[in-house]
Design a protein around this nucleic acid. Structure first.
Length: 337
DNA sequence: CTACTATCCTGGAAGC
DNA sequence: TGCTTCCAGGATAGTA
């Protein structure tokens, strides 16, 4: 399932394929994948056709593509008709974006039109012709495929960020963000991420550290897999209380999360090169590198290196599974550490 | 306000 | 074999 590294791989791949191209066709094959677009599928289709994608940005696991009208993009000025005055501001900066969230099983694929539809193809965007650096034609279709329909796409307005910093990671770094992503915290790979801010907010929470790690409003990009991996690397139990957490422990945890996600990002980037066509968070291209997640009953690698034969255990937590080493990550007692 | 739970979905695996 | 139940989990609406 896509977490931050997978979404970032998709973002980078998408940016190289779609920037500057016009959306010439929109086909919505399953309205459930656009249910977050309140105005309905026809409104979505009507607004997308003729729009030019200017960038691909990411905040946490949310992706968005700022859009301008084809006329504005080619002439560098607002359209005289003003049919959609909210699309760009006075400086021609896009104020409309196509939002996408991959959810559990979503994929964004660039493909040639002659390829057969995927079983769970939900939305098909046809893009204007373009060629890559070596002169070969780029694929004409951007497909949204999603088996479990937790993800989706919809249109959203872009608003200025409170601090004037880039709203998300992207090629152009516009200081804009969709309202639906404004509450999402920076992720550990974002240059604007502040550990001091994270730690101050963490200490005010009265909950367990894993629940806090999974709270995208506190720190984003961390899902169940990388939460377990970061906790294992930092030797912390998932239930450790946040309000008494030491700074050094929190710092070690964040650096562990950053480290594991950086390595996953590198693996995703090298395994599939720029052909993110094959990006599939569930394919497990990084799974061989996992130390705790999904390894119930297998030896803890760290204990094994010390000659111990501790086995990874699985606990039910938050309606999902938590994997940990009972020796490296002892359960908190009486909330005292 | 904060903390936490239920819910949305599909299909593969496990259980009987 | 064939049916039923369970399980995976990101984000959010709703509840306490």
């Amino acid at each position: 399932m896509p977490e931050l590294p997978e979404v970032e791989v998709v973002r980078r791949g998408l940016a190289s394929w779609v920037r500057g191209r016009t959306i010439t066709g929109v086909e919505i094959l399953d309205p459930r994948s656009v249910r977050r677009h309140a105005a309905g599928p026809e409104d979505l289709r009507g607004n997308l056709e003729g729009a030019v994608v200017t960038d691909v940005a990411r905040r946490g696991k949310f992706l968005w593509m700022p859009l301008v009208e084809a006329a504005a993009a080619s002439h560098g000025s607002a359209p005289a008709s003003a049919a959609s005055p909210s699309r760009v501001d006075d400086d021609g900066v896009p104020r409309l974006a196509l939002m996408a969230h991959l959810g559990m099983s979503g994929q964004l694929l660039m493909e040639d039109p002659h390829l057969p539809d995927e079983k769970h193809l939900k939305v098909r965007l046809t893009l204007s012709p373009a060629v890559s650096g070596d002169g070969t034609p780029m694929p004409a279709e951007l497909r949204f495929v999603d088996q479990r329909i937790f993800g989706g796409v919809f249109l959203t307005d872009l608003q200025p960020t409170p601090d004037g910093a880039p709203g998300g990671l992207s090629e152009t770094g516009l200081p804009l963000i969709p309202e639906e992503a404004a509450h999402i915290a920076r992720d550990p790979l974002d240059p604007a991420f502040s550990f001091d801010d994270f730690y101050a907010r963490l200490r005010k929470r009265k909950t367990g550290i894993k629940r806090a790690l999974l709270d995208q409003g506190l720190i984003s990009g961390v899902g169940n897999i990388y939460a377990d991996e970061a906790l294992w690397a930092a030797k912390l139990h998932f239930a450790r209380p946040t309000d008494t957490m030491r700074r050094a422990d929190a710092l070690r945890l964040v650096e562990s999360a950053r480290d594991v996600m950086t390595r996953a990002l590198a693996a995703g980037g090298t395994s599939f090169d720029s052909l993110y066509v094959n990006v599939n968070g569930a394919s497990g291209y990084f799974s061989r590198s996992l130390n705790a997640y999904g390894r119930e009953g297998e030896p803890c690698p760290r204990c094994a290196a010390l000659g111990l034969s501790t086995l990874i255990r699985r606990d039910s937590f938050m309606n999902r599974s938590s994997y940990s080493c009972p020796v490296c990550q002892p359960r908190p007692r009486n909330g005292r550490w």
